[in-house]
Amino acid sequence: MITFILSIDIQGLMIILFSAILVDNFVLSKFLGICPFLGVSKNLKTAMGMSAAVIAIMLLASAITWPIQNFLLNPMGIGFLQTLVFILVIASLVQMVETIMKKTLPPLYKALGIYLPLITTNCAVLGVTILNITKDFSFGKAMTNSLGAGLGFALALFLFSGVRMRIEKADVPKALRGLPITLIAASLVSVSFFAFKGLIENIFG
């Protein structure tokens, strides 16, 4: 057991985790999951609910799709069905989680329930499962990457909902009101994430 724990490449995992959260942030530098990013960032509470649901589904989806790709699709030589299989797995997973949650955890369902159907069409979830495969991650790394992606999504959403609450109160020129000013604010938040670019090399490199 001890040798097993020691054999885990902690540093490698940390690099993956932090680069997924800060450097290659899913929302702000990979543009995955923009729809919920713009849609539910209006107030902090819904933003947190959505993020929690996304983190949970990302972890579950990666835990299921990684074995499917490596133990089922690849040995049978039908790796090209990846997209089709993954999206169906995610869609049914979301449906299943929703049903189970409704039955066993009604308060949690009340809080997160409305966000669950939206996650099916959230490209971040499908994106992270596909990236785990294309980057040839081991299972542990794949799970770390998914956790990082989810946390990165939550961080971006959290920061941006704060920015947006300020915009609501600001006096914005008429032409920019609504979505345009939101996008320009997103652009500025995205610029701020550039500060993290050299972080990984300097800490772990």
Binding site: P180, S187, S190, V191
Partner: peptide, 9 residues
Amino acid sequence: PPGGFFVFG
């Protein structure tokens, strides 16, 4: 990436 958001707006 920030330019993408900006130009889209």
